[in-house]
């Protein structure tokens, strides 16, 4: 667990680009434990890129990034793996193993860290995201929204300190989006640090009614803390 008050995610003058010029630059921020942030910006602004920098799938071209007070730069590959066990991620494209049923996919973070999933807890978790009927289905057989909910279940199964969700409601109807938001709020009340990338301003408004969420906006390659105008 992170010490009280110590930033969970820290960026200092971070820049990134995929080769064709910079995409993000001079990104400096610090997310406190237990905070709830939304990340917005036009499509292609670099929201997914920002989240990938957070869990080390991408390395910054400049600046430093630290999680739980540890610099990603100085971490070994095994350190990164351990870090990812503490950071739950809902990927925009979900990223499942298509040959394993949903239940096994959800339990996968436990499996790869050498632990067994408690069958009851696993079933409860899957019920929590409303997929009880789909336990044995293979990922390709699920709808986009079902996959996103399964991805959320997988992201929280390790009870991570941080949850990064990339467009988790992209394929959900409004009602389902609100249910998923309720799940995120519940996790936040349990003390988890949450970052949600989304286009959905209605979702942000709905969240602000329930928790003190702040909004980060990517604009002109910079990351800004948005004001109250949202």
């Amino acid at each position: 667990m992170s010490e009280q008050g110590q930033a969970v995610i820290e960026f200092e003058n971070v820049a990134h680009g995929y080769g064709g010029g910079p995409l993000l630059s001079e990104v400096t921020l610090s997310l406190a434990p237990g905070s709830f942030h939304f990340l917005t910006g036009p499509s292609g602004a670099g929201k997914s890129t920002f989240l990938k920098l957070c869990y080390g799938e991408l390395a910054p071209v400049a600046g430093r990034i630290a999680l739980f007070g540890q610099e990603l730069d100085a971490m070994s590959r095994d350190d990164i793996a351990r870090l990812r066990q503490r950071v739950g991620v809902v990927h925009q494209d979900c990223q499942f193993l298509d040959h394993l049923p949903i239940a096994d996919n959800v339990a996968l973070p436990l499996t790869v860290s050498g632990r067994d999933a408690d069958p009851t807890e696993l079933r409860e978790l899957i019920a929590w995201v409303g997929l009880t009927g789909r336990l044995k289905s293979l990922p390709p057989a699920l709808s986009g929204g079902e996959r996103q909910r399964a991805a959320l279940a997988r992201a929280v199964i390790m009870s991570p300190d941080v949850l990064l969700a990339d467009e988790p409601t992209g394929n959900l109807d409004w009602e389902m989006s609100l249910r998923l938001l309720a799940l995120l709020v519940e996790l936040n009340r349990m003390g988890k640090t949450i970052v949600v990338a989304t286009h959905d301003l209605n979702l942000i408004r709905a969240a602000k009614a329930q928790v003190s969420a702040r909004v980060l906006r990517i604009k002109d390659r910079r990351l800004l803390l948005a004001g109250a105008e949202l």
Binding site: Q95, L108, R154
Partner: peptide, 15 residues
Amino acid sequence: QVIRVLRLIGARDAY
């Protein structure tokens, strides 16, 4: 792709 996913969810190289 399988290896990528495993890596993303925190599997160590040895695993």
